[in-house]
Each structure stands twice: as structure tokens, then as C-alpha cells.
Nucleic acid binder design. Structure first.
Lengths: 249, 249
DNA sequence: ACTGTTTTTGCAGGTTTATGCATGTTTTTC
DNA sequence: GAAAAACATGCATAAACCTGCAAAAACAGT
């Protein structure tokens, strides 16, 4: 096989799977691994791929391109945040949890909204404070350093004393069998209390976490009123949830 | 799986869930936990995540986002903060207000201090959260957007339920005639409650504010136990306060 | 077609990297 | 305060790597 051909083949493989192993290629094409290595080296110099120990990766896959901007799935979260913010009306009492998605929602609130937001998440409070017209209530209690929200009995009993119209939770895992689940006991207790204290529960998550599970259950899927992801409500991934009676946005 | 690929996978997981356990990863990817540990170590060195015992955390929340040097009279406040921090012993319950001086105190706390800090100031909570060993209690209530502390009846009744060893207040004005005074009614109510709930009151202020006055009184000079400024305790400016029975540091 | 030149390839060797394992230590947790 | 989990460290090994070299292949020009 000619060098050019080989190069084309390698690039084809890399675009197909986002990675290649030198060993695989040398076996496939029946040339020595030295040759493959030289090929990869050349292609890397030409910027067609990224050479790593043991093989090569697609340029699209690697850091600079995808990682820098979108490791936090910023774009998806923005979209979720906007859908979520549109549910809030003047005069409402809104309970919210913590997490980056909720922070994005805080940023996406319309300028003249006149609602009351209650949360135990310190970073979220920070974000709410920048809004000109909303009222912000902090839930007191012991502060969990990991999750940066208030937890414990104090916080839970405060939440129990509230009747909110809406509850927004950024969730870590959801499936139909076990509903919403998470991995921090203290945080789960808080979320449970929030769910019980609200008329409607709105769950926010990027689609990637749909159909996944974590050790501790927050609530049944039946408790969820609205589910928001960055995808279209018609996406087949979400169909089972619609059929289970959840409104999907 | 290639090393770089693994790194990308780990980062993806971490940004998805905000944390990962080494054990989970080694099971997922099917490599030894040693390898995972080495991966996490490398990624941590590169600043892509924060390594902790048993796994790693996302950097997303842990960004020190308070600008350091653009604080008015930074050096003076540093000095005050250090004097103040030296008063705190293991096991103490400490009530603190808000303000840049208190934030500096939070930064000046010794690394192994084992005390409990109670505050309603959101920026101060942020700072406390960075400390490895202290316990942090947030006072709940309505959040005042100006002063960034919780105010109102809810907060006050919470404070009343506390018996603290020390209370640190950053103060805006003090003279012998009217004691400590301030200009925000809500904030003053909170400070009053704090003073009443503590054994000892420690007031922090830059010397510039000594012998000045604001419209609303917080407490009498007789309520103050300790006064801390950036000046030496022997400074003539402070003599009247010493003579009035206040311990000056 | 022949010869000189260039390119490509495989190989020998010595080096580096990645990984797992064994050891002993620290940290966490109950 | 003792057991379990997580950690660091050093070592061994296999795989991947680089370098230089020589054989083979491809090329080009009179």
C-alpha cells in the first residue's frame, strides 16, 4: 500500500472513531509499527491529527477545541436556563437548589421579574443578588463545603415552613425506575424537603444525564411535574418520560 | 484506552457531576486505581480539577472569585484581620457580621483552627467555605442586596437563638458619645441582635473611622469588649477608648 | 535500459512511558 | 482507637518510542 493511501486510510479511521492505535493500524495495513509511527508523526505535523503515546486522536476531540469552551456544557445549560426562566411569573414563590444549571437560570431571569426566590445555595444567592427586582431569601443552616449549600435539620425545618409555587432542581441522575437520584446524603435530604414544600416540581438536566442513576433517591418520577433538557421535547430520548405523565420542555 | 482519552473521559465525568470517585473510574475504565490516581494527580497539576481524598472535584465552584487588591485600605485591613484572628481559639462559637474587614479576617484564620463561624453575610460565607477545618453556619432570611447580608425578623430570631463566645463586627463609625453607629436600618437590627447574643463583642475598624458618627446607633461604647484597629494600642487616638474601659488591640 | 538520486521502509539498539504490583504510610470512618 | 480505604513510593515489565542505518523501492534523465 502506498504512503498516500495509508495516510488517507488513517485519517478516515480517525474521523470515524476519533482515535486510532498504532498497533491496530500496523496490523491492519500490514506494515511495521515504525512506519505507522512515522505516518502519524507527519500527519500530526500537518495538523491533521494529534499524536499521543500509543496512537493518535482526532483534532476535534482534543482540548483546545472542545474542552476550553464547552467542558461545562455551557451552551446546553444556557438553553435549559432559558426554558426554565420562562416558567416564572410575577408574584411567584420559587424554591431552587444549587448547581451550575440553576446559576445559569438565575442569569437568564427577565429584567423586570417581580418574584421571590428561596435557596440555600451560596453561589446561587450571589447570582440572585445581581438581579434588580427579585426578592431573595436565604435558607439558613450548616454550610456544606462540598456542595456549597446549607444542609442539616435547621435548613430542612426552614424549608418545611415554606409553601412555594415552583421548585427548580438541577438534577444529577434520573431514570424511570428510580426517579431522581443523587450522591450526597445531606443534599438529598434538602432536595426531598424542597420537593415536598412545592406545588410543582421542575427538574433541569442536560440530556446526557437522562437514564442514569446515583446511589440515593431524591424522589419518584411521579413527583416530577416538568422536565427540562436542552433537547427538543419531541426527542425520542424523552418519549418515555412524556408517556409517564411528565411534561417535557 | 489511551491515556489522553482517559483524561478526557475523566474531565467529562467531573464536569457532568461535579465530582468523581477514583474507585468508580477505575471500575468504569478498567484500569488499576493506581493509574486513576496518577491521572487525577496530573490533571490536578494542570489545574483541570481539584484532587481530594478518594476522588476529585470540579474546579467550577472553587474559583476564588473575589478580587483581592481593589479593597479600600487593603493593607490596614490585613493587619486588623490578623489581630482579630488571633483571638479565636479551638471550639469557640463565633458570630460575625459582613464587610471587607471581616472577609480579610476569614482569610487570616490559621489553617488548623477548629471553631464554628456563624454569619449572615454571603461574601463572608464564601470566604469561610475555603477554610478546611472550620464549621460554617449561615443565618437565613431575606437577603439585602446592598449589604449582601441576611436581614429581617427571620434572621434576627435565628440570631437570638444563639449563644456565641465572640462577636466580630466590622463597624462604620464609632465615638464615645454614641458608641457604634451605622446607616442601614436593617443591618443595624442584625448587628444589635448579634451583640446581644454574644459573650464578648469585638469591633474592627480602620483608624480613619474612629471618632465619627452615623445616623443609627448599634450599641453603646460600654457594650464593646475589644476594639481593633491597624494602629498600635498605644496610639493617642485610641487613648480615650482605653480609658473608657475598652480593651484596645 | 541503465545508473545515480531520492524516498520509503524495516530493523537493531537503546531510551522513555505507561501501567500494575508490592510495600509501607496516611486518612477516614465507625 | 482500630479497621478499612486511599495514598505514595519504588520497582519491574512490556509496550511504545527515537535514532541511525542499510536495503529496497521509486523516480528521473540522458
Amino acid at each position: 500500500m502506498l504512503k498516500r493511501e495509508r495516510h488517507a486510510y488513517i485519517l478516515h479511521q480517525i474521523n470515524l472513531r476519533n482515535k486510532v492505535l498504532s498497533a491496530d493500524l500496523s496490523l491492519d495495513i500490514n506494515v511495521s509499527d515504525d512506519t505507522i509511527r512515522r505516518d502519524l508523526h507527519e500527519l500530526a505535523e500537518a495538523g491533521k491529527l494529534i499524536k499521543v503515546h500509543g496512537g493518535a486522536l482526532s483534532t476535534a476531540f482534543h482540548s483546545g477545541h472542545l474542552a476550553k469552551r464547552d467542558v461545562y456544557s455551557y451552551t446546553q445549560k444556557r438553553m435549559i436556563a432559558q426554558k426554565a426562566a420562562s416558567l416564572i411569573r410575577d408574584g411567584m414563590f420559587v424554591l431552587t437548589g444549587g448547581g451550575t444549571t440553576i446559576i445559569e437560570m438565575a442569569r437568564a431571569l427577565p429584567q423586570h421579574l417581580h418574584a421571590t426566590f428561596i435557596t440555600g445555595s451560596i453561589p446561587v444567592i450571589f447570582e440572585y443578588m445581581n438581579h434588580p427586582t427579585i426578592e431573595v431569601i436565604a435558607i439558613g443552616g450548616k454550610v456544606s463545603k462540598n456542595s456549597k449549600i446549607t444542609v442539616g435539620l435547621e435548613a430542612i425545618s426552614r424549608i418545611r415552613g415554606i409553601r412555594a409555587d415552583l421548585c427548580f432542581l438541577g438534577i444529577n441522575a434520573i431514570n424511570l425506575e428510580n426517579g431522581v437520584s443523587d450522591n450526597d446524603w445531606d443534599v438529598v435530604q434538602i432536595k426531598k424537603a424542597m420537593v415536598e414544600s412545592s406545588q410543582k416540581l421542575v427538574c433541569l438536566t442536560i440530556a446526557e444525564k437522562i437514564n442514569s442513576q446515583q446511589p440515593i433517591q431524591v424522589c419518584e418520577h411521579a413527583d416530577i411535574d416538568i422536565l427540562i433538557t436542552e433537547r427538543s421535547p419531541d426527542d425520542p430520548l424523552l418519549k418515555p418520560y412524556k408517556e409517564a405523565g411528565i411534561q417535557v420542555l
